[in-house]
């Protein structure tokens, strides 16, 4: 019984800061700064109205969602064949290459902020979704390779050989037979790519002219006279894509976190 109590106490601790954010987002600034109440006394939709009527905020959301989607697609499509190669073949320098890939997942984003600015400015991609989508590949591609390699190694290689004997060409075998077999793994990898691209701020801010939703938010923090209600409402809205993704993968979360490797 005490186990349940610990578990629920933990869940409550997780929810409290989120509840407070939602609570503040429905309050006006006068109420926020003058009274301390557990729920809005005079609930207002003013904060949300500002966001939905201002093109700047709305475009920020769209911009962020599009580079996240683009990054997930790029990461998964290049990582799939590579993960297959790492799982099935020995080749020159494979172990070193694998570790080198992983080190990029570990490189601090702060180190790369400035060179990225130079690099993407010089090839004319600065301030576009492509810049952020490509830059986020540095940590998402290695992660996707790592996760997919685990799942692919779980598929017996007899299947590969049977398909070859049956006369399937490699690309056809890969797309028609192999990818459905590791659909779970692809889902998990896509989930992680989405997650890490969505939550990242430093590169997204450096590579764009304050277009991503995350940088629009930091600007409203530093602006004179912080609009707490507006900030809270924007925060609540950024939670929604994550919450939706979690809801869709809820049955796979436990398996997914094992990364196919336990």
């Amino acid at each position: 019984m005490s186990r349940r109590i610990i578990f629920y106490a933990y869940l409550v601790c997780l929810m409290l800061p989120l509840y407070w954010l939602i609570n503040l987002s429905f309050k006006g600034n006068v109420e926020i700064s003058t009274t301390m109440t557990l729920w809005p006394i005079e609930p207002t939709l003013r904060n949300y109205a500002i966001i939905f009527t201002s093109p700047e905020w709305f475009d920020g959301f769209l911009f962020s969602l599009s580079y996240v989607a683009l990054n997930t697609i790029i990461s998964i499509s290049v990582a799939l064949p590579a993960a297959y190669a790492f799982s099935r073949y020995c080749f020159l320098g494979d172990k070193h290459l694998f570790f080198w890939l992983l080190t990029n997942r570990m490189a601090p984003a702060a180190v790369f902020a400035l060179p990225y600015f130079n690099l993407y400015s010089s090839i004319g991609l600065f301030d576009s979704v492509w810049a952020v989508a490509l830059a986020h590949c540095i940590f998402n591609v290695p992660l996707a390779v790592w996760i997919l390699e685990g799942f692919i190694s779980g598929v017996p290689r007899e299947i590969d050989e049977t398909a070859r004997i049956d006369g399937y060409s490699f690309p056809r075998f890969f797309v028609r037979i192999f990818m459905p077999l590791i659909a779970n793994g692809i889902g998990v990898a896509a989930f992680f790519c989405f997650m890490f691209s969505w939550v990242e701020l430093l590169l997204a801010r450096t590579l764009t002219n304050s277009k991503a939703i995350s940088s629009i938010m930091t600007r409203s923090v530093s602006a004179s006279g912080i609009d707490w209600g507006l900030l809270a409402a924007a925060g609540v809205l950024t939670l929604i894509p994550g919450a939706l993704v979690i809801w869709f993968v809820r049955n796979h979360i436990a398996k997914g976190f094992a990364l196919g490797r336990v």
Partner: peptide, 18 residues
């Protein structure tokens, strides 16, 4: 599980804001 996974998908600057 859904509640536990929620903080992981909050953008990092929003974690700061929260």
């Amino acid at each position: 599980l859904v509640i536990m996974a929620l903080p992981l998908l909050v953008p990092w600057n929003v974690v700061g804001t929260i």
